[in-house]
Design a binder for these strands. Structure first.
Length: 289
DNA sequence: TGTTATGTTGCCAT
DNA sequence: TATGGCAACATAAC
């Protein structure tokens, strides 16, 4: 569930409650794999007694900066949840880990599908990961030229390329489908085939859908919730995601939306507004509306 | 009751 | 290196 807007919503909800607090203990449940190969005891030894100086987000990754310049990385993957609770609150459903903070609160991690991770990283490990992740799409440097440079020469499908976190950070299945619809681009276009006009349009719509998602505190279907267990409302603003299967009418042209599998992912789009061949006789988006 | 789908990513084969 | 397929897991919905 969590893509960039959801992860940022979680971060914003945590900052005031967590920054400046020290970690006094680490509790891990039966699924010890949540802390990765380092293991529970070593992870605990590395985090306790350290103060949290800040929370950074890169793409869909969260990094809690500890006072010794190491990091606790959290990735929610599909169904992860991070929440602030009181120490005495009952366990969350699927709770795997809790960081006990020095003000009597807990920072808890839960994950139904056990894909998510909470890993302690040394400074060097942080740099390696940070460097491998592509540019932030909401950063001021995410210009049309920068996006073009990430797509040029690629023969892979546009959607698959946008989902590759090394090319651009933070996009997932929902926001990619929404951005491609708004930009009028077919998800299976070769990524390197876009004109500079199409690339500029795509950059604009990527930023638009992410900002809208952020404004609505994320898209909540079954499992996404913020740091306090609250839901976002962006699901009410989606134009194509989840609608292809039902063949709902396109909000732009009225023709039925369709479902396609691209790179193994369900892909919702409008075959008319997002033609694979731009010469198919359909007026292109942006010409007159 | 069985089958299928799910917002992510890493590993493996080509 | 670039690309594509699939597994990791638990549950909900059909």
């Amino acid at each position: 569930m969590p893509e960039l807007p959801e992860v940022e919503t979680v971060r914003l909800g945590l900052v005031d409650r967590v920054v400046g607090r020290a970690i006094t203990d680490l509790r891990v449940g039966v699924f010890s794999g949540v802390v990765g190969p380092l293991g529970v005891d070593a992870t605990r030894a590395r985090v306790i007694r350290h103060r949290i100086d800040g929370i950074r987000r890169r793409g869909k990754y969260l990094f809690f900066e500890l006072a010794d310049e190491t990091f606790v990385m959290v990735h929610l993957r599909m169904t992860g949840v991070l929440q602030i609770t009181s120490r005495s609150a009952p366990p969350l459903r699927f709770e795997h880990l809790a960081m006990e903070l020095d003000d009597g609160s807990d920072l808890r991690f839960a994950d139904q599908r056990k894909f998510g991770r909470v890993l302690h990283l040394m400074p060097k490990e942080f740099v390696v990961l940070d460097t491998a992740i592509g540019p932030e799409p909401l950063g001021s440097d995410f210009t049309p030229d920068l996006l073009a440079s990430r797509l040029v020469g690629r023969t892979a499908k546009l959607k698959s390329t946008l989902l590759d976190q090394r090319r651009v950070a933070g996009l997932g299945n929902i926001y990619v489908d929404e951005a491609l619809f708004r930009a009028g681009l077919h998800p299976e276009r070769p990524a390197g085939s876009l004109t500079s006009t199409e690339t500029a349009h795509l950059r604009f719509e990527i930023q638009a859908v992410l900002r809208e998602g952020l404004l609505h505190r994320g898209t909540s279907f079954s499992t996404f919730s913020d740091a306090y267990g609250g839901s976002g409302s962006n699901q009410d603003n989606l134009r194509v995601y989840g609608r292809g299967r039902r063949g709902d009418p396109c909000v732009r042209c009225g023709n039925p939306l369709a479902l396609l599998i691209v790179g193994g992912r369900s892909t919702h789009y409008c075959p008319r507004c997002q033609a694979l061949d731009p010469q198919s006789g359909v007026r292109q988006r942006g010409e007159n509306d």
